[in-house]
């Protein structure tokens, strides 16, 4: 009983992560502003993937050190990368796209 409960919880977490992936990746296909895409991507790639990693962690608790490392790396790297992408695209946006988005 215990095992099946853990299994179901982990499947639930993985499914929730997948839902977040789809929700966050879909705006990439649409014609939206660059920064709103980045907001959506931070939902999909950071939060959704973190949920999936938690689901995997429930499935194989034996490998927790490496999975914890992966979780840490994922959250920190993706967040900082989002910031760097936003900050670095700023001069380009200001000069070329500012007129286009109004």
């Amino acid at each position: 009983m215990q095992g099946s409960l853990v299994d179901h919880t982990s499947l639930l977490l993985l499914g929730a992560g997948l839902t977040l992936w789809f929700w966050g990746s879909w705006p990439l296909l649409e014609n939206r502003s660059y920064l709103s895409k980045l907001h959506a991507l931070s939902v999909a790639d950071t939060l959704g993937s973190a949920l999936m990693l938690l689901g995997l962690l429930l499935r194989i608790p034996g490998q927790w050190p490496l999975l914890t490392l992966a979780l840490l790396g994922l959250i920190v790297w993706n967040t900082i990368f989002g910031y760097v992408l936003a900050a670095c695209s700023l001069p380009a946006r200001d000069s070329t796209q500012a007129g286009e988005q109004r």
Partner: peptide, 9 residues
């Protein structure tokens, strides 16, 4: 830039 974001994803 859109492409870079896609690649990170």
């Amino acid at each position: 830039w859109h492409r870079l974001a896609a690649f990170s994803s």
